[in-house]
Design a protein around this nucleic acid. Sequence first.
DNA 1: GCCGTGACGATTC
DNA 2: CGAATCGCCACGG
Length: 112
Amino acid sequence: MKGEDSFFQQVWEIVACIPRGSVTTYGLIARSLGSPGAARTVGWAMRAAPDHMGLPCHRVVNQQGTLSPEAAFGGAARQRSLLEAEGVLFTEDGRIDMKHCLWTPPGCMGQR
DNA sequence: GCCGTGACGATTC
DNA sequence: CGAATCGCCACGG
């Protein structure tokens, strides 16, 4: 069925599939695409992501559950508000509570 | 087919 | 924790 999905396209596809109240990580997405080491490329896809897709990029964070540079999303505080508004929990460290909000993409290569 | 890029990940100091 | 470094991979030029 579909074959011409560029890496970027697949990333956007998964991001668009993230359920509300959950978050995923760049590395996890890269894994589900078959490239466990392409976490950077996934992040790059976000940067180059067309906003007309309405991608919930605020639901994509790094493995630690922390937001990278505030330059993204228009401010880390901004993202936190968005996530909390969707039901995502935060720790006292200001990090996302991965234990309860981490979502794993389908076909995650065995998701070990 | 090489080079630069980058919103990551892990490791090290 | 913060800063620095290396590795890894895909895209554009």
